[in-house]
Design a protein around this nucleic acid. Structure first.
Lengths: 168, 168
DNA sequence: TTAAAATTTTTGCAAAAGTCAAAAGAACTT
DNA sequence: AAGTTCTTTTGACTTTTGCAAAAATTTTAA
């Protein structure tokens, strides 16, 4: 992914709790996190549901808007002060003009689908304990980077339940 | 998708409760459902978790294995007697040799990602009632084709809870 | 460093969903 | 068409999870 990143020289700093993106806006940029951490969530009847986290060296993007060009359902908010690089759709499109890069894009998309399948299984798992263990196993770093109450939401359980789980 | 389907002349009939695929097998075919219905599920500690359904005119595939070439985690089972056409990876690959078809493949993958995001939000929605309503709205046909106990599993609730929801 | 503020953890309580068993209803099979 | 099997519904009961408030801990800021 560094080929893309290096095309960009624009960096942005977002303070804790500030929004990079709110629902309703169109955003065809991709962001590369230099430092800090972010969360992506949707608002479901006054409840925030976290879809994904991003921290150092991750790429973050409002995928729905990026792929469709329509307004996004997603919010992106800084959990702590975060510095990101901006890569525009233009840059991506330019990059994808080449045949080999386009094949590489296919791989990226295929990987995204596979990751989403994993996530789906995580969410379908009935027992909160197993959900916790699955994600802990696959993304141990998450628990270093992100406050528990956000992880609890991501795992669809209350902070209380997560707290009770970690002792047992 | 008919361009692909028409390449194939192989059809298979699967009886109710029979498996088209079980965990551990590699399967790089794509299936097109002529009639009947299927479910895809994973086995999570003795519990079946339904990932997706397929009925008439749907395409169904063990995506994990199809994309990676590795053994699949998925089971595909007929809910009722089902007739499918088989399209092999070879045929798909041949199809993807052309530049325009490959761009079309990218669109398919992008759509898959977007669908998966919808599914993720469905699963994150806390209230069983809302989960039921969301899916009912998006896929009303599902409720014509598939027995409730399977839909309940798909919506991660018990058959009893779904039954009670439908009256209120 | 200490006080204030914010966050996390804990507790009891209430509400929601799950389980179990049995009955009613549908759908397949022969 | 009758019988068998499978699915849905219902009610009693149990378990789990969320909620709200309090206690403990951590962070912030003076």
């Amino acid at each position: 992914m560094n080929e893309i990143i290096d095309l960009s020289d624009k960096t942005i700093t977002i303070d804790r709790n500030e929004y990079l993106k709110v629902k309703g806006s169109i955003d065809r940029n991709v962001y590369y996190i230099i430092s800090g951490s972010l969360r992506i969530f949707v608002l479901d009847e006054y409840e925030e549901q976290i879809i994904r986290f991003g921290y150092k060296d991750n790429i973050i993007v409002a995928l729905d808007s990026f792929l469709t060009g329509k307004p996004s359902e997603l919010y992106i908010q800084a959990i702590k002060r975060t510095v990101i690089k901006v890569v525009s759709k233009q840059q991506i499109d330019h990059f994808l003009l080449s045949e080999t890069n386009r094949n590489w894009w296919i791989k990226i998309l295929e990987n995204l689908v596979l990751q989403q399948m994993e996530r789906e299984i995580d969410l379908l798992t009935n027992s909160p304990k197993e959900r916790y263990q699955r994600v802990l196993k696959r993304s141990p770093q998450l628990f270093q980077e992100i406050p528990n109450r956000h992880i609890a939401n991501y795992l669809r359980m209350s902070a209380e339940t997560l707290s009770r789980l970690k002792k047992s």
